[in-house]
């Protein structure tokens, strides 16, 4: 018998082992749900799959009685728009400020301490300020996401630029590159895939800030809906919404990964010469 640390699952076993916890969780849920519903048919905590199915159907494919909207899609669109704008803005800031900080010591001296200080502010603590300054509309939500993840992206980009081997920067100068050309042709293309990596890492926080902002002030959105129906203990809506958000998060991550692979073949070749 080999040591435990040397035993590796076969391909099939790996898949099975991966599925197992999910199946167990599902079974546990079904079992607990059945128990509670048997004791009290009106129990709302662990709704049966059939009522979850009905709730999904009505949220996705039946117009809301009051607004006439298909709520799931309206919520999804609103949330994705806020998330997309916030992340895009943060990524742009990360790229521009991060690369400037990393490549130009004069910028770094001026901006790096500020970015450092800003990144230490807990974003949720200034959410009230955002609501006061930007109102309760879209801007404050996008601003919260941006304030929440931009400092991380900026610092990460700065670090990535500083990690480029000094030899490369010297070499580019001996090829006649100006500062601008060096940034444009040597630094930017090399940190772009790293930016996408960093964005993927920050998506979790972006969702967190989005849902928090929506929970507090919104008229539609995935986070808004979850917190709204919480008042009626509508677990049959909350649970599928949570799963839907998880799926969206997975898909964005997957798409970004594919995009990186497609656009930067050299990056996956080891990255270093």
């Amino acid at each position: 018998m080999k040591r435990l640390i040397n035993q590796r699952p076969s391909r099939a076993a790996q898949v099975l082992l991966g599925i197992l916890p999910f199946a167990l969780l599902l079974l546990a849920y079904l079992w607990a749900s059945e128990l509670r519903l048997a004791a009290n048919p009106n129990d709302k905590l662990l709704p049966a799959f059939s009522s979850i199915g009905e709730a999904i159907w009505s949220m996705a494919f039946e117009a809301d009685k009051r607004s006439g909207n298909y709520l799931l899609w309206v919520d999804t669109l609103a949330s994705l728009q806020r998330l997309g704008l916030g992340v895009l803005l943060s990524a742009l800031m990360g790229l521009v400020i991060g690369v400037a900080n990393g490549a130009v010591p004069l910028f770094r001296a001026g901006l790096s301490p500020l970015v450092m200080a800003l990144s230490l502010i807990p974003p949720m603590a200034i959410l009230p300020v955002l609501f006061i300054v930007f109102g309760l509309g879209e801007v404050s939500k996008v601003a919260l996401i941006t304030i929440g993840i931009a400092p991380f992206l900026i610092r990460d980009m700065q670090q990535r630029v500083l990690e480029l081997p000094e030899e490369q920067l010297i070499k580019a100068q001996t090829l006649g590159a100006s500062s601008w050309q060096l940034i444009l042709r040597v630094i930017l293309p090399q940190v772009l895939p790293r930016l996408l990596d960093a964005v993927r890492l920050s998506l979790g926080s972006a969702w967190l800030f989005l849902i928090a902002a929506e929970a507090i002030a919104a008229t539609e959105g995935l986070g808004y809906r979850i917190f709204l129906v919480r008042r009626y203990l509508s677990m049959d809506v909350i649970l599928p919404y949570v799963l839907w958000i998880t799926l969206l998060a997975f898909l964005t991550d997957y798409l970004l990964r594919v995009l990186t692979r497609r656009s930067f073949p050299w990056y996956y070749n080891g990255g270093k010469p």
């Binding site: 081997p165 010297i170 070499k171 090399q190 050299w266 990056y267 070749n269 990255g271 270093k272």
Partner: peptide, 19 residues
């Protein structure tokens, strides 16, 4: 500062991995 008068080859990292 470095310029095109003086070319250099280091032991490593002399070429650009993204090109």
């Amino acid at each position: 500062e470095p310029n095109a008068d003086r070319g250099i080859v280091f032991q490593r990292y002399s070429v650009f991995p993204h090109l």
